[in-house]
């Protein structure tokens, strides 16, 4: 075996080991890597009131209720729902049917008390006219489902490709 060949195998095996080790580590610490939990994720785990965490999903249509500075809305992943309460300024993109991520604590009454609300944008960009046309022809729901958190897609029917 020539030195070049030996170095080739060494580099190849080294990289293979490195990638495998990284994959194992990332799988092990997955809970720390996910930026937010979906309402379904939260239901599946026990959450204490002193635990700061993030919950993400779509703002349910017609669920936003404002009383003064305080706003309440329902976050859904098309499977489970969670009511969120927040006081403060909402980001420009916050609206019904849009994805959001709220950071805060779980209240004793099952209402999530958020101290921060971030808007999440999906990967579908289009001019306003196209969005209007899509809403009219009824293709809108497919996009809304795509924007839902990943874990939700296991429990709902996958969006048909268009």
């Amino acid at each position: 075996m020539t030195r070049k060949r030996r170095r080739l195998y060494f580099v190849g095996l080294g990289l293979l080991g490195l990638f495998a080790a990284t994959a194992l580590i990332l799988t092990a610490v997955e809970d720390n890597i996910v930026f937010f939990f979906s309402p379904s994720d939260l239901k599946a785990r026990t959450v204490t009131a002193d635990q700061r965490l993030r919950v993400g999903g779509l703002v349910e249509d017609g669920s936003v209720a404002k009383t003064g500075e305080t706003v309440r809305f329902v976050v859904t992943d098309n499977a489970e729902k969670l009511t969120v309460q927040y006081t403060g300024i909402l980001p420009d993109l916050f609206r019904e049917g849009q994805g959001i991520v709220a950071e805060g604590r779980m209240g004793a009454d099952g209402i999530f008390m958020a101290s921060d609300v971030l808007a999440k944008h999906d990967e579908n960009y289009m001019p306003p006219e196209v969005a209007e046309a899509l809403k009219k022809t009824g293709h809108w729901q497919e996009d809304a489902q795509k924007a839902a958190p990943k874990t939700a897609q296991d429990t709902t029917t996958p969006p048909s490709s268009n």
Binding site: F35, L90, P91, D92, L93, F94, V117, L118, A119, H121
Partner: peptide, 12 residues
């Protein structure tokens, strides 16, 4: 900053 409402988050 204008869209999410934050300059930076520590997401993956």
């Amino acid at each position: 900053e204008p869209m999410w409402g934050t300059w930076w988050v520590w997401d993956a």
